[in-house]
């Protein structure tokens, strides 16, 4: 399959890239790893007239901790996150998510920033990073601005980014001694989108209660979803079996899946319940010092 014609730009700097987006507006698309956009272009469902490739801009690939945040450059590939020691040792939620995105070959090209900006409700990063309490940095003609991920997903394939803005960094509150997380994905086969997936990030207090908790749901709504009411069930409470069960049931009611080839909505909703309970138990175990 051959995409429609387009003009290709590979700017060397971020300001150059932003200038191109200002010039071409809605007719331009940003190209990162291309593993969502290029398949759409090959099907000719997407036919941008101008492609702005970010891959030759230095300094957008990094994973580092600073000033209380884990900062991940937008061009960081899924595979880099999967194999990063910083992620493996301190961020099990992200490590879990990275290894179940598509397949190893796709993870070698696909980027975390591209995945978020594409805003596919089946994108694993959306749910995982909502659970992690992340924000993104958008860089445009007037410099950078921070957008909480809660306000980022506006609709299917639609984000709070302006046409002349580029997602440049993802920030996540730095992991602490009593923090834990998990991401569980139910898929028909390796490489497929989730039937349903659930991310959990939490911080336990010294008494073992949930001081902070985030729950993100994947592919069970028009966007990645945050299960805010389920989080409320847990906040300030000890995550015992009864509380976890109640939170999981609440998360299921907050999900909004549709019938499709991956299963009927009722089934997916119930899988949200099951996965939420399992992910919570796993995350609590990790926060208490398990692997």
């Amino acid at each position: 399959m051959i995409p429609g014609s387009f003009e290709y730009f590979s700017p060397q700097t971020l300001p150059e890239a932003v200038t191109l987006l200002q010039r071409y507006g809605e007719d331009a698309k940003v190209l990162a790893g291309g593993h969502s956009l290029i398949p759409l272009m090959k099907l000719r469902l997407a036919a941008p007239r101008y492609l702005v490739d970010l891959s030759r801009i230095d300094g957008l690939t990094y994973i580092r901790e600073s000033e209380g945040f884990l900062r991940v450059g937008a061009l960081t590939r899924h595979g880099d996150i999967e194999t990063s020691d910083v992620i493996r040792s301190g961020y099990p939620l992200l490590a879990d998510a990275a290894r179940v995105i598509a397949d190893p070959l796709v993870r070698n090209m696909g980027t975390v920033g591209g995945s978020l900006a594409h805003a596919d409700p089946a994108g694993d990063w959306g749910a995982a990073l909502l659970a992690a309490g992340a924000h993104v940095v958008a860089t445009g003609p007037r410099g950078g601005r921070t957008i909480p991920l809660d306000e980022f997903f506006v609709g299917t394939f639609t984000t709070a980014l302006q046409p002349d803005e580029i997602l440049t960094e993802i920030g996540i509150p730095q992991s602490q001694k009593n923090s834990g997380g998990a991401y569980l994905k139910l898929e028909r086969k390796v490489g497929d989108f989730a039937i349903a997936a659930v991310g959990v990030g939490l911080l336990l207090s010294s008494t073992g209660a949930c001081e902070q908790v985030g729950i993100g749901l994947c592919n069970v709504g028009p966007t990645s979803l945050r299960a805010g009411q389920a989080e409320q069930v847990l906040r300030g409470k000890k995550p015992d079996d009864a509380t976890i069960a109640r939170a999981a049931e609440t998360a299921a009611t907050e999900s909004d899946p549709a019938d499709d080839l991956r299963g009927p909505a009722d089934y997916k909703r119930d899988m949200v319940r099951v996965l939420t309970a399992r992910a919570l138990r796993l995350a609590v175990g990790r926060a208490k010092g398990g692997a």
């Binding site: 596919d120 299917t156 592919n219 028009p222 966007t223 909004d256 499709d260 991956r262 909505a265």
Partner: peptide, 8 residues
């Protein structure tokens, strides 16, 4: 997989 969500 997207049509249901988009319709809503």
């Amino acid at each position: 997989r997207l049509i249901g969500g988009v319709a809503k």
